[in-house]
Lab assay of single mutants.
Amino acid sequence: MASQGTKRSYEQMETDGERQNATEIRASVGKMIDGIGRFYIQMCTELKLSDYEGRLIQNSLTIERMVLSAFDERRNKYLEEHPSAGKDPKKTGGPIYKRVDRKWMRELVLYDKEEIRRIWRQANNGDDATAGLTHMMIWHSNLNDTTYQRTRALVRTGMDPRMCSLMQGSTLPRRSGAAGAAVKGVGTMVMELIRMIKRGINDRNFWRGENGRKTRSAYERMCNILKGKFQTAAQRAMMDQVRESRNPGNAEIEDLIFLARSALILRGSVAHKSCLPACVYGPAVASGYDFEKEGYSLVGIDPFKLLQNSQVYSLIRPNENPAHKSQLVWMACNSAAFEDLRVLSFIRGTKVSPRGKLSTRGVQIASNENMDAMESSTLELRSRYWAIRTRSGGNTNQQRASAGQISVQPAFSVQRNLPFDKPTIMAAFTGNTEGRTSDMRAEIIRMMEGAKPEEMSFQGRGVFELSDERAANPIVPSFDMSNEGSYFFGDNAEEYDN
């Protein structure tokens, strides 16, 4: 993207840094990872977990959730003011799984939030270390993106479920800051804005008074975040219109849905970061690795190297396929839920299948599930090659597409044709070009129609051997075009429920 120079890199967003050079960025990201790792080690000690239990991804998720809940100030305040039966607002906890007599047992633990905050700050040299908290939120978000298709949420806001490739980060909490905003897809931002506008339509006082002023500035800020994701002048001009509207209503909703559809071809720039579970960072720190000293990046080879040398386990339900569970977590670790499966298959070195073909449910185990038949197995999170994460949407291309997802959002900077089903997408653009945004709409449609099938995206960008740390010898991959490109292809993934 041309304006790259004016933006802070995501590592800076990730670490609240002012302008830093590459070495400083690597050190501050490393410091953040160190903090998460030290916190995780301490929690495993508190909970008396064995090494194996500490490497269980379900335990990692519970521990991450506990610290996120302990620092969720708004919710904590709300819980104190609106006490609900049987919930102690000062405590947080969740299921911890232990191996007892050759069987997995679930144990519900409860801790004072104050105590968890103390352990977290102690692991982070006394700081609140917001960057580390956001990092864990993005890992949870990436896992949700890989596990669930947001059909219901899309339909509720009037969008087409086939636009799911635009929904990265749709389950990120509001408090995820600049680093969170960077990884949100165009569809996620559109959905947040539509929800806001709908509230304004239904509630006369939404934009009024002292609160209304705050609401208005939040609305304009979200519009600017979305505008910054678009790469064409016409899309940005249309966002200006939406932002400046005196009284946002149905016309703005129409414009936003139009823009979301246009992003299936004229893709937005959305950041991709490899955020790993805390149970990967903990053992690495415990083994003596100093992330701050060595430096770390979320968008280069580092996460690949770390996963190459990590042992992570997962509980497996009786009829689940461990290899499929591994694929789910591998995609989440690489922030690749909406990437082209052919690119992923090449990088991973084994075939990556669409969601609907995987015999696996989510990673988390519900409290009512029976533990008797639970097994555990090693997650295979290694890769054959590594590639640089991208934040450009890439230019655009036609490809055989599917009944489910009709476009992709690249996660890796790797040369390819970008699949999208042009006739299906263009069919949504018939007729409606009147109104105050008509010239911009016409211009956007013209650009979409001009998108050429034979153009290559990320020209000359390749993948790298894991021994090639400096990215000196790019390998331009070859793809098996007979395979499906979309992950949520004609899909039956479970729906995400809060």
Rank of each mutant, 00 (worst) to 15 (best):
A2K: 01
S3K: 00
Q4E: 11
G5W: 14
G5F: 00
T6V: 00
K7V: 00
K7Y: 02
R8G: 06
S9K: 00
Q12H: 15
M13E: 08
E14T: 11
Q20Y: 01
Q20H: 01
Q20N: 02
N21V: 06
A22Q: 08
A22I: 03
A22S: 15
A22C: 01
I25N: 00
A27P: 05
G30N: 11
G30E: 09
D34L: 13
D34M: 15
G35E: 03
G35D: 02
I36E: 04
Q42C: 12
M43F: 11
M43C: 10
C44S: 07
C44E: 13
C44R: 13
E46H: 06
K48Y: 00
K48W: 04
L49C: 09
L49H: 03
L49W: 09
S50P: 14
S50Q: 15
Y52P: 00
L56K: 02
L56R: 03
I57L: 15
Q58P: 11
S60G: 15
S60T: 14
S60C: 14
T62I: 00
I63W: 07
E64S: 09
M66K: 11
L68C: 11
S69H: 10
S69M: 08
A70N: 08
A70S: 15
R74Q: 14
R75M: 07
N76Q: 15
E80A: 09
H82A: 04
H82S: 12
H82L: 05
H82R: 10
P83S: 10
S84K: 00
A85Y: 11
A85S: 13
K87F: 01
D88L: 03
P89I: 04
P89M: 04
K90F: 00
K90R: 14
K90Q: 15
K91V: 02
T92C: 05
G93H: 08
G94T: 10
I96D: 09
I96C: 09
Y97N: 10
K98G: 05
R99H: 09
V100H: 15
D101C: 06
R106T: 08
V109Y: 02
L110D: 10
E114V: 00
E115N: 09
R118V: 11
I119Q: 11
I119W: 10
I119G: 10
R121L: 14
A123R: 12
A123Y: 01
N124S: 14
N125L: 13
N125M: 12
D128S: 10
G132K: 03
H135T: 06
M137Y: 10
M137G: 02
M137H: 06
I138Y: 02
H140A: 08
H140N: 12
N142P: 10
L143Y: 05
D145H: 13
T146G: 07
T146P: 01
Y148G: 03
T151N: 03
L154F: 01
T157N: 06
T157D: 08
D160F: 06
P161Y: 00
P161E: 00
R162F: 12
M163K: 03
M163R: 00
C164M: 12
S165I: 07
G169E: 14
S170H: 09
L172W: 00
R175K: 15
R175H: 04
R175Y: 05
S176L: 02
S176M: 01
S176K: 03
G177R: 05
A178M: 12
A179G: 11
A179T: 02
A181D: 03
A182F: 09
A182T: 10
V183Y: 09
G185R: 09
V186D: 01
V186C: 10
T188V: 03
T188W: 03
V190A: 15
M191A: 03
M191H: 10
E192A: 04
R195Q: 07
R195S: 08
M196H: 05
K198W: 03
G200H: 09
I201A: 12
D203W: 07
R204F: 02
N205F: 00
E210N: 10
N211H: 00
G212D: 11
R213L: 06
R213P: 04
K214A: 13
T215Q: 14
R216I: 05
A218G: 05
A218I: 08
E220V: 00
E220L: 01
R221N: 09
R221V: 04
M222T: 14
L226M: 10
G228A: 10
G228H: 08
K229M: 07
K229E: 04
F230D: 03
T232L: 10
T232K: 13
A234D: 15
Q235I: 06
R236I: 01
M238N: 12
M239S: 07
M239W: 03
E244I: 11
S245R: 03
R246H: 14
R246M: 06
N247V: 03
N247A: 10
P248S: 13
N250P: 10
E252Y: 08
D255K: 07
D255T: 08
I257L: 15
F258I: 01
L259A: 15
A260K: 03
R261W: 10
S262M: 08
A263L: 04
L264A: 10
L264M: 08
I265Q: 10
R267F: 03
G268V: 15
H272C: 00
H272N: 01
K273G: 00
S274R: 00
L276F: 03
A278Y: 01
C279G: 13
V280W: 05
Y281V: 11
Y281H: 07
V285A: 08
Y289V: 07
F291Y: 14
F291C: 13
K293P: 09
G295E: 12
G295T: 10
Y296E: 02
Y296F: 12
S297V: 09
S297Q: 03
L298N: 05
L298F: 12
L298V: 09
I301N: 07
K305Q: 14
N309Q: 11
Y313H: 14
Y313T: 03
S314W: 05
S314Q: 10
S314A: 14
I316E: 05
R317I: 03
P318I: 10
E320G: 12
N321G: 06
N321H: 13
P322S: 11
A323C: 13
A323M: 11
H324L: 01
H324T: 11
K325C: 03
S326Q: 10
Q327I: 11
W330L: 05
W330H: 07
W330G: 08
M331A: 10
C333L: 04
C333I: 07
N334S: 10
N334T: 05
N334R: 00
A336D: 13
E339T: 04
R342S: 13
L344Y: 09
R348Q: 11
G349N: 06
T350C: 12
R355L: 15
R355C: 10
G356E: 11
K357D: 08
S359Y: 04
S359I: 13
S359D: 00
R361H: 03
R361Q: 11
G362H: 08
V363L: 15
V363K: 03
Q364Y: 10
I365P: 01
A366G: 08
E369G: 10
N370Y: 06
M371L: 15
D372H: 07
A373D: 02
M374R: 03
M374I: 15
M374V: 03
S376G: 15
S376K: 09
S377V: 12
T378N: 03
T378V: 06
S383P: 01
I388G: 07
R389N: 11
S392Y: 01
G394P: 03
G394V: 04
N395W: 00
T396I: 03
N397T: 11
Q399F: 03
Q399S: 06
A401E: 09
A403Q: 08
A403H: 12
G404C: 11
Q409D: 00
S413A: 07
S413L: 09
V414S: 02
V414P: 00
R416A: 07
R416D: 01
P419T: 04
P419H: 13
F420E: 00
K422A: 11
T424D: 14
M426D: 00
A428P: 01
A428I: 11
A428V: 06
F429M: 10
F429R: 03
T430L: 01
T430R: 14
G431H: 13
N432E: 00
T433F: 09
T433L: 15
E434S: 15
E434N: 07
G435E: 11
M440D: 14
R441D: 09
A442N: 14
A442H: 00
E443Y: 03
E443V: 13
I444W: 13
R446K: 13
R446V: 13
M447N: 03
M448H: 05
M448E: 10
E449N: 15
G450P: 12
G450T: 15
A451L: 15
E454I: 12
E454K: 13
M456T: 06
G460D: 00
G462Y: 09
E465G: 13
L466R: 00
D468M: 03
E469S: 10
R470G: 00
A471H: 02
A471L: 01
N473S: 15
N473Y: 00
P474H: 01
V476W: 00
P477M: 04
Y487G: 00
F488D: 03
G490M: 07
D491A: 03
N492C: 12
A493M: 10
A493S: 01
E495L: 07
E495P: 02
